[in-house]
Amino acid sequence: MLKYLILFGMFGLALLLLPVTQADEGPDLGPNLGKEATPEQIATWDISIAPDGEGLPNGSGTAIEGKVVYAISCLSCHGREGSGSLNNRLVGGHGSMSGSTPIKTVGSYWPYATTVFDYIRRAMPYNLSGTLTNEETYAVTAYLLFLNGIIDEDEIMDAQTLPQVQMPNRGNFVLAYPDNPDP
């Protein structure tokens, strides 16, 4: 709040606008122009998935189903079985990170399986993002994990199982913030 007082002070408006004697802590001292958002509004807007799975929707899918989704929506850019084509390779490169030419794919690099679901749902397919259903998104996520040898072809991915998937490169990430290790 103090910061806000100073700001308005800088604008020379403090006397005009601030009920300085008001003792209440909290939003009354701000312009307070935000409208309280309803749970329904938030549910519509909030599409992000946390690494513990918070935010994952209902629904489920397997790699067997995902292969079909992939062929229709992903293959033209990412190639057969995620081998890369016009755009990013999604499969393989396992063990390459310690070599001289790392190959960064979902399987060799990405630390969290939840991120795969989150990113596909928000940003893919490139020309029509946000059009896959939750079932299709679970299925194509499962397919990419299967192609990378991380889960079985018939393993069901849903809000409970996806956060449990152990990504192979997970242990090789270091937080520069807040831990601030040597470079």
Binding site: P51, M97, W110, Y112, T115, Y119, F173, A176, Y177, P183
Partner: peptide, 27 residues
């Protein structure tokens, strides 16, 4: 409470070190 671990901060804007480990959140 914690970082969301989005694609851009995990798979993309991260810094791989000589031993193959990678730094996240080098802001």
């Amino acid at each position: 409470a914690g970082p969301t671990m989005t694609r851009d901060e995990t798979a993309e804007y991260t810094d791989t070190r000589p031993d193959g480990s990678s730094l996240m959140f080098t802001f």
